[in-house]
């Protein structure tokens, strides 16, 4: 008799199991997301190099410090004046309107001149910024030129022109590089009109495959100038 509870319970469990099986029930699969403990990466900022202080820069600094001092002096004076005025106001409250007008005009004048000065400064600032950029660009230019020379030489060495090549034929290509100097893409931007000539150009680039010398290059310069390089192939040493 006391088996009845046990039997019913086990029967129920079996029934449940069989029904689960019949219903094709599955334990919902869990998607496990692996969370990395920390992200190993650094924020790279391509901070531009500070250009050497030029003569103009020094002059400019001097000017600024002079102006700053003047500003400070003026401010001090203003404060003093204002304090004086306030004191006066306190002492003689409703005095003549003439006296009131005068400082207001003065103040306006001062504000104008200050604004003009600020504008001038901003102008200077932008000019100098540009100058700094130019200086840097010219420095880059010098370095880039030597790399261009390497690229030109390597392409020249590997360029075998077909007999259909003629003087005046020009193929413009864009070479896509990765920082190891490996060529990952060649895009013909303008064709010479001669299929074999264009093919010889691509063949030359593919034959070089990797400009090993570019590996040591400054990252910033690479991104700026060598991620994509445009090359013009136009023979000048042919007979016809």
């Amino acid at each position: 008799m006391y088996y009845l509870a046990g039997v019913t319970v086990s029967g129920l469990i079996h029934l449940l199991l069989v029904s689960f099986l019949l219903l094709n029930w599955q334990e919902p699969s869990k998607i496990i997301y692996f969370q990395p403990k920390y992200i190993k990466a650094e924020l790279v900022t391509l901070s531009p190099k500070l250009p050497a202080k030029s003569v103009q820069r020094q002059q400019y600094d001097q000017l600024i410090s002079e102006e700053k001092q003047q500003d400070r002096e003026r401010q001090n004076r203003n404060i003093e004046e204002r304090q004086n005025a306030e004191n006066k106001d306190k002492k003689v409250a409703p005095e003549s309107e003439l006296q009131k007008k005068k400082p207001a005009e003065l103040r306006k004048k001062e504000r104008d001149s200050e604004e003009a000065q600020r504008k001038k400064l901003a102008e200077w600032e932008s000019l100098l910024d540009r100058e700094a950029q130019e200086l840097e660009a010219r420095e880059d230019e010098e370095v880039a030129k030597s790399y261009y020379q390497i690229i030109r030489q390597r392409l020249s060495d590997n360029w075998s022109r077909p007999p259909s090549a003629r003087l005046g034929m020009t193929t413009k290509v864009r070479i896509i590089l990765v920082p190891t100097g490996r060529v990952v893409g060649v895009v013909i931007e303008s064709s010479s009109g001669d299929l074999a000539f264009d093919r010889s150009v691509e063949q030359a680039i593919r034959k070089v495959n990797q400009f090993v010398e570019l590996q040591g290059m400054d990252d910033r310069l690479f991104e700026l100038r060598f991620r994509q390089v445009t090359v013009l192939f136009s023979p000048e040493d042919l007979r016809l």
Binding site: Q56, L127, L128, R130, E131, E134, A137, R138, E141, Y148, I151, R152, L155, S156, D157, N158, W159, S160, R161, A165, K172, A204, R225, V229, T230, V231, L232, F233, S234, P235, E236, D237
Partner: peptide, 26 residues
């Protein structure tokens, strides 16, 4: 002076294309 500098470097800047004018016909 600055304007001059900018204009000069502007000329140098435009020369970004590599020209290959010789080959090694083999």
């Amino acid at each position: 002076i600055i304007v001059l500098l900018i204009s000069f470097s502007g000329i140098a800047w435009s020369e970004l294309v590599i020209r290959v004018t010789k080959g090694n016909d083999s």
